[in-house]
Amino acid sequence: MTPMNLPLARVAIVLLSLALTGCLGDAENWHGKDISGLMPELAFTLTGTSGKPVTEADSSGQIRLVYFGFTSCPDVCPATLSSLRTAIKKMPDNLQDEVTTLFVSVDPNRDTPERIGSYVQFFGEGIVGLTGEEAALRTFAKRYRTTFGYDQPDAEGNYQVSHSAAVYVFDGDGEARLLLRPGLSAQQISEDLTTLAAESSPS
């Protein structure tokens, strides 16, 4: 093979893939963004609010809502978490227990497990606070194509943290299903979660 022909073989593959990806359509009408097949299944080993390791297996069978944030977050994180709580409360009673919210703090320097524990208590029962070493958090974030960054601290040592504004939704099998972008109402999130919960528990 000559140097020119190696790329040429790929052109064919690329064109084929383009044709294929262009033909994929949305079968269901979600309010959130359907990310089936775009991302790997849920997998992590992080630290829970009790200081013990937590993995995806601990909430297996549940619909998992993964949200990256930090407890000093001025508005976006509390707003998102309370919107998720409202959305879950709007679901039919028998399906509410099927949803677990995973709040992942990406600010381990300030957010101790205890601090995260008292923070997530504000947002209802079915929420798990998580954090970890920065490297573990980076690995987890990278797996879901997101990142976080820190601003320079001000005189009091406060700093901003950039993080994903979306909520990643995984089904009971751990498959990535939906991405809830900011801007969705609690009602819309509730409808999506109800549809998802209903499909996994045919009762």
Binding site: F68, A141, R145, T146, T147, F148, G149, Y150, D151, Q160, V161, S162, H163, S164, A165, A166, L179, R181, P182
Partner: peptide, 12 residues
């Protein structure tokens, strides 16, 4: 908005 959704490398 994907960069908003997925977080930026630094706050900008």
């Amino acid at each position: 908005d994907v960069y908003e959704v997925c977080g930026r490398a630094w706050p900008m």
